[in-house]
């Protein structure tokens, strides 16, 4: 038995890191909206799904001009996907901004944080079912091309070039975003608004602009997460819904508002899911995020890296 664990462990870790990097990208977007807009946004999962589907639609619609998904070396995608991703990002951002304009902005003015959560819970179900209506209930893939997984560590780990690329891109994005928040004026304005909106406004920060920036930034990261999942696995209407608990778990585990925290939280949740599927019971994959969440809420509700030191 011990031998078996040792033999499967490298692959479990690889799968966990891959799943974790998608969760991390989603959780970074969630933690930013959570800290600045101050409510648990259940629609974030659906932004991930919609971003993926928007990109897929753009890819199909633009094929006459961009000639399909493209091909870079051993990867299954190339410039074509980058162009389509640009369209997908715009689509998801417009969706997020429209939701804010039509629903959340009014409720922010009149209601309390909890009314926002009810509204986002309702909107998330509506958005998910809109995917079923538009695209159908079946899963779809970006490419039908078969990829041979490369063997590493003497054959113990099998990873496709796509998966490696996604892992690297996710890490680069997290680093870039941390730098952005720390050193740019917009990033500082965002952190100030998260800390204290009233004080931020008094000091001359355009908080409405910050709110829009947060929605767009969240939508960009969500689209990337959706497309990364679409490339390495597939797109399903329930994709965003199934990610909700892992996303919240990762964001709260990392400490709301902390980008490195969400990244690490995402990796931890991804590894936990991967280990649970391999060693415990594959049917309970979606409950793993919840167990991590309960554990962190009981032991340390402020998360590993609380936003303020």
């Amino acid at each position: 038995m011990m031998d078996l664990v040792w033999l499967t462990l490298p692959q479990v870790i690889a799968n966990g890191l891959l799943q974790g990097s998608a969760i991390a990208l989603g959780a970074i977007g969630l933690t930013l909206t959570y800290s600045i807009l101050r409510f648990a946004n259940f629609t974030h999962g659906e932004t991930i799904s919609w971003g993926g589907y928007f990109t897929l639609t753009a890819l199909a619609a633009l094929t006459p001009w961009i000639g399909g998904i493209g091909k870079w070396g051993g990867l299954t995608f190339g410039w074509g996907l980058v162009v389509a991703l640009g369209v997908g990002v715009v689509g998801a951002s417009l969706l997020a901004l429209a939701l804010d304009r039509l629903l959340f902005a009014t409720l922010r003015r009149h209601g309390s944080a909890i009314t926002l959560v009810i509204a986002s819970f309702g909107a998330s179900l509506a958005l998910r079912n809109l995917i079923v209506f538009v695209y159908g209930p079946e899963s779809v893939q970006f490419t039908r091309e078969l990829v041979i997984a490369d063997r590493w560590l003497g054959g113990l780990v099998r990873v496709t070039p796509d998966q490696l690329a996604v892992l690297g891109l996710s890490a680069a994005l997290a680093v870039g975003l941390t730098v952005f928040l720390r050193f740019t004026t917009t990033g500082r304005a965002m952190r100030a608004t998260a800390e204290n909106p009233a004080l931020a406004q008094i000091t001359g920060i355009d908080t409405a602009h910050v709110v829009r920036t947060v929605w767009v930034l969240g939508a960009v990261l969500a689209t990337l997460a959706g497309v990364f999942i679409g490339i390495t696995a597939q797109l399903r209407p329930e994709l965003g819904f199934d990610l909700l608990l892992p996303l919240f778990a990762a964001a709260i585990l990392g400490g709301i508002g902390s980008v490195p925290g969400a990244m690490l939280g995402g990796l931890i949740v991804g590894l936990a899911e991967s280990a649970a599927v391999e060693y415990l019971h594959a049917g309970y994959r979606n409950a793993v995020g919840f167990l991590v969440l309960i554990a962190i809420l009981v032991i340390r509700p402020t998360g590993l890296f609380a936003a303020r030191g």
Partner: peptide, 15 residues
């Protein structure tokens, strides 16, 4: 807090 209660009860129903 309210929103954490929302997330955890949601998780319980899923579980």
């Amino acid at each position: 807090r309210h929103d954490y209660l929302a997330i955890t009860t949601f998780g319980i129903a899923v579980t």
